[in-house]
Design a binder for these strands. Structure first.
Lengths: 345, 345
DNA sequence: TTGTAAGCGTTATCAG
DNA sequence: CTGATAACGCTTACAA
């Protein structure tokens, strides 16, 4: 076991000073060709690599991005990470990931842990609980300390920082419009409780689509779910007791549950009911029938977030000139919304 | 914007020395009650937090774990991360994540990036390409430098370090045995190419199960796939041209493709063919029919890996006394393997 | 009880 | 051209 080589050791070995070694390795013109080559050869031979921690301390920059996410076993967040990691790595940054598990306390702890020098800035998608509490002091504090933050997807309007969002409401509207265009007259929505910002926005999009097509809004066709995990029963009961010909859901999980509920009724998707869902992932792609989705382009969102953050870290952007990047959604039509026999219209 | 407070500033402010402040904050008995309280009050008031980077440099410990994974948009790895993160955070460690995207070069780069002081140790699941090349010099180098490594899931036998694996072969064997017990006579396997260590082991388990039940091995019922993404066609062709009553697949994706292929044939799962898959995830849980799986307990594997690494980092374990933790698999029986009408036997 | 100084590994400034 | 020195923020002998 050979411990890591340091400048000091090289200096001692070659009988020069530490600063000479440092300069030689950085190709300073101050150093004679001869010593420079000698030092570089030695360093290469013994595979010298400067110590990141020492550099961080010196430069007061870690070249590390702190990423705080609500969860990770979830296609969307996983793709976001991919996008961030891709850009970050390519620009020489590392990504320090913490999971809040949707808990406010853990989010606060994580941020405190990282804010003390471990990272240069943050990319955050806030926890559900945080949105519910509407307590953002931990975010404000970090911003006040001069660390840039980029919020992704689950953003907080009242914070002054860069944001990356998709047009949740428009995406939802387009999906519902698609159902309407396919002849649906009675379209239900299965969504989350309102304090989840994106759930609310998607619900808004649903309402807008109906309104702009002069379809009366029926509160009885709106199901708001608190907890995804225990939702199948709720969804079954909801759909068994209502007659609908189209269903819009705010995530893939709800969509598959809806299909099951419809099957339970002895009907099927898409023959009797069309289904369109927000969030594209493997589940939608592989389900039978495959589920039509609103693609959120998670990787693109992540990449954009990383770019915004790095721009700020490297000051290539005006101070105080925060932007909100809007990543476009797109519809991916699959079997679940393809009208087969014209049962409607 | 108030930049971070340092010991030096507190010292200047209170007109004492830096070391007095440092000691007071660490409750040293050397410091008088009076000054200690004064300093602590001040620090608390202005929310002083020591700088992690400086601590890291001083202690030559970062309390950071480097995690290098092949991919992340994949339920299994996502659960592994969750498990690691959980344990790490609870023990005061951070997790620095890098993705290799299954590329050897990226894996090497990532490790070099993190090995220069950024982390105290590594948890790694090696890239497919690395397993193919069988080039592990980057891992050996890190080990030689005295940084502990824990390999997870995709391990490398010839490396001397801690490992966390599941009994892939036994899990597969149990699953196939289950199919046999359910009356299957002609069981096909859809697996990966052999250089993927876990694919190979699962294939071995399949073979073992057949052999120990005196079922002749039919090479024609073994399909080895290189690339998951383009596999549907291959699987269709494979299953359309063979008569089988049971299928074992090494991942969820193959299982869903198999179900589709069977449907294409005008048959169905589980009525005509039973399906059992390795790897449990949301896809299996929600698919129709829901897929029976071998649960890998990813979170448990991650947690175990983090524990092993941290033990080593904190020297609570004998040097050179490496262990291979074997996490037990378990079968989760769902619809896809539940015999409905006894078409077989 | 408090303070000084050295050191963690680097780099930058300034002298020699 | 080379080297000593200080500094990044912190801890810890060792002095005072």
């Amino acid at each position: 076991m050979k411990p890591k080589l340091t400048l000091k050791q090289i200096a001692r070995e070659l009988d020069v000073s530490v600063s000479t070694v440092s300069k030689a390795l950085r190709d300073s013109v101050e150093i004679s060709e001869e010593t420079r080559l000698k030092i570089k050869a030695f360093a290469k031979l013994y595979n010298y690599k400067p110590n990141n921690i020492a550099l961080s301390l010196k430069n007061r920059k870690t070249r590390t991005i702190g990423l705080v996410l609500p969860e990770i076993v979830h296609d969307f967040f996983a793709t976001v990470i991919s996008g961030i990691e891709e850009v970050a790595n390519q620009k020489g940054y590392n990504v320090l990931i913490c999971l809040s598990n949707n808990s406010f306390d853990r989010e606060v702890m994580n941020m405190e842990m990282l804010a003390n020098g471990s990272t240069d800035g943050f990319i955050i998608s806030v926890a559900k609980e945080t949105q519910q509490k509407e307590d953002y002091h931990h975010l404000e504090e970090v911003i006040n300390q001069g660390m840039p933050i980029v919020l992704v997807d689950r953003v907080v309007d009242q914070l002054t920082c860069d944001k990356v969002i998709i047009d949740d409401s428009e995406g939802a509207k387009n999906a519902v419009q698609h159902l309407i265009d396919s002849g649906c007259k009675k379209i239900a929505i299965i969504t989350t409780v309102d304090y989840v910002s994106v759930g609310k926005l998607r619900t808004d999009g649903y309402l807008e689509a109906l309104t702009s097509n002069n379809i009366e809004i029926d509160e009885d066709l709106i199901l708001k779910i608190e907890n995804v995990d225990q939702s199948q029963d709720e969804i079954n009961e909801f759909l068994l007791t209502r007659e609908v010909d189209g269903i819009f859901t705010v995530n893939e999980q709800f969509a598959t549950s809806a299909v099951k509920a419809i099957n339970l009724k002895g009907k099927s998707v898409p023959e009797d009911v069309l289904v369109f869902s927000f969030s594209d992932g493997e589940l939608s792609r592989r389900f039978i029938p495959s589920i039509s989705t609103v693609d959120q382009h998670g990787a693109a969102m992540g990449a954009k977030a990383a770019e915004l953050l790095i721009e700020r870290l490297e000051n290539t952007v005006e101070e105080e000139n925060f932007q909100t990047a809007l990543v476009k959604t797109s519809l991916i039509e699959r079997e679940s919304s393809r009208r087969i026999k014209s049962s409607a219209v």
